[in-house]
Amino acid sequence: MTKYIFKRILMLIPVIIGVSLLIFIMLDLAPGTVLDIIANDYSPEQLEELRHQLGYDRSVFYRYGKYMWDLVHGDLGISYIYKTPVWDLYMQRLPSTLKLAGASVLVSILLSIPLGILAARKHGSITDNVSMVAALLGLSMPNFWLGLMLIILFSLNLGWFPSSGDTEGIKSLILPAITIGTGLMATLTRTTRSSMLDVIRSDYLRTARAKGVPEKAVIRKHALKNALIPIITVIGTQMGRTLGGSVVTENVFSWPGIGRLTIEAVKQRDTITVTGCIIMSVIMISIIQLIVDIAYAFVDPRLKSQYSTASKRRKRIGRTPEVRANGT
């Protein structure tokens, strides 16, 4: 198991390097540098000095190497627009995004999984059809539209929740979380349903029932654990996406998160902040993916046993190394 986890972590490194290099080069290719924007505030000598400092007189790979080296030390460079380290900007905004992502994913898990199971168990019934139509609706509503509708109804007309910002605790969280959660719920409900449908008619559930396992345990224990892999995959992908900041929703609700920070930086040509935000998102998504991969191994014994260590396996099977050596 440790070997499996270790291997996964090692595999993260080339992924992060590859993706971040690609992003770095793409942003670098964009015309104009931060130097053009701040040109008015500095003297030509200072600018020349900065150009050297930022590595604009060397190749893009040099700059990338330097950037990643600094990143490992918690330094994402300095935003010349905000005049603060990008790391600090990012960390300032991260809690809001985490809160929003956590709340929307949690709500969608709590609602979608039971709903998906119900739809699968009552396959073809009215409950099933209604929840699938609802899921389709949820999937096809764009976030900016849903967000605006929620604001019009619950903030402007009813005045129950604030329409913007993250200043009123749970109250400010509810509308943006619903906005993001609706899309997530739709996908997750559909995934749960189809994955449960595959399992629900299986022979091993019949075996469980024939043993006298209560129906609740048949579904929650025997069926759900088998249906879990696609569900975990979807949850992981969604968590990763929302951690990168939901640009649209955060803007509709003026939510002080990463998505909003990224957009503001883009508007001001603050390349260094944009790069920082995107590369941090890449890292976040990779970490979530790692957690997902580890979760797979816990759910699917076929994966786990592949990595169980030889000594443990020998002990279980009761074979001694000598016997094995003789056998070969």
Partner: peptide, 21 residues
């Protein structure tokens, strides 16, 4: 009653066991 008074050996052993336990 199922599993204690009456139980069944199923026909297809390949699919009758739960893969995750």
């Amino acid at each position: 009653v199922r599993g204690s008074e009456v139980s069944m050996i199923f026909q297809d052993p390949m699919t009758s066991l739960n893969p995750v336990f």
